[in-house]
């Protein structure tokens, strides 16, 4: 999606000769008026908040506003980097983001490959329809589900006690080692079917003659998946990886915010919760903004790094 997007920006602009500009402008009042209105909207809701980044260099007081608040330079960033919780929050966000990214790709591709092997159309359609369902549930509902199945009287503990012979129920939300994997599992449960849509579509676009040729050579089903389907998906995988790498620091919110507690906050607190704690609850708007800027900058670096790597390896890239 984004490849098309960004490449066509530079290539599709045809440009109009200067002499014709006024004549052309008279022909497109609808385009000009609506774009002007949308420009104002975009400035107000997307660009002015970015100007708000200056609050990170001030000791922002709501009563004084942007103009009269005292300038403090990088003091807020210094305060941020001296904060131990901030480091933990950054580590946790990055760790959960990376784990989610890996699971996202592995499960979506594996699911698409397996589903593609189902030859009974009715079963395939049915399973696929079911697989989208969790994507449409809210994160609040998914968080509630995670909490319920992992509760001391939930189905997981019931299984562990009755089948695996555990004597006591495990309190999953009181053990630091489990939390990241709970988040990863919840993401897999919610999004695998949805993420597989693009791969399934890409698989249908593979030239059938490749499989016919492989049949002639006596390739097994597994060999066809490994040597034809998977390599054909490479461009799709690379472009989606690039799109998602900038989102690594958006490691979700609800699970960490609602399920995180004092016992496991060392591993459950993420940057967004940190920002919320400081910005909205403790009214240190400047510190919250500084943390937000840090997050944006890291995300931008990751996107550029991914793009640069793709350029080096000769793969698809975003820009």
């Amino acid at each position: 999606m984004a490849r098309n997007t960004i490449n066509s920006l530079s290539s599709a602009d045809l440009g109009v000769k200067k002499t014709n500009k006024w004549a052309e402008a008279k022909r497109q009042p609808f385009l000009l008026i609506s774009s002007a209105l949308l420009l104002i909207y975009g400035i107000i809701f997307y660009y002015v908040p970015v100007l708000g980044w200056i609050t990170a260099f001030q000791d922002y007081k709501p009563a004084k506003g942007f103009l009269k608040s005292q300038w403090v330079g990088f003091a807020k960033f210094q305060k941020l980097f001296e904060n131990k919780t901030f480091y933990l929050a950054f580590r946790n966000t990055l760790a959960m983001g990376v784990i989610n990214l890996v699971f996202h790709f592995v499960t979506a591709i594996a699911f698409a490959l397996i589903l593609n092997e189902v030859r009974v159309m009715f079963a395939k359609k049915f399973v696929q329809t079911i697989s989208y369902m969790p994507h449409f549930l809210s994160w609040i509902i998914v968080t509630a589900i995670v909490r319920d199945i992992l509760a001391s009287d939930g189905i997981v503990n019931e299984f562990l006690m009755n089948v695996c012979g555990n004597k006591m129920p495990i309190d999953f939300f009181a053990v630091k080692g489990y939390f990241w994997w709970i988040v990863a599992f919840a993401n897999v449960w919610k999004e695998t079917g949805w993420n597989a849509i693009i791969y399934l579509a890409a698989i249908t676009a593979i030239d059938p003659s490749l499989y016919e040729a492989a049949d002639m050579d006596g390739a097994s089903r597994f060999q066809k998946v490994w040597y034809i389907t998977l390599p054909s998906l490479r461009p799709t995988i690379m472009i989606l990886l690039l799109i998602n790498i900038g989102n690594v620091l958006n490691a979700g919110f609800e699970l960490q915010y609602i399920l995180g507690n004092d016992v496991i906050s060392d591993v459950s607190k993420i940057l967004d919760v940190f920002i919320l704690d400081w910005g909205i609850s403790q009214f240190d708007f400047s510190l919250g903004t500084a943390a937000g800027i840090f997050k944006s900058v890291i995300a931008l670096i990751l996107v550029c790094l991914g793009n640069w790597t793709a350029k080096r390896t000769g793969d698809e890239r975003l820009f």
Partner: peptide, 14 residues
């Protein structure tokens, strides 16, 4: 706007 945004707090203030 897809890659750069103000973040929670500046947006709140605006």
């Amino acid at each position: 706007t897809m890659y750069v945004n103000g973040g929670l707090i500046p947006t709140y203030i605006v």
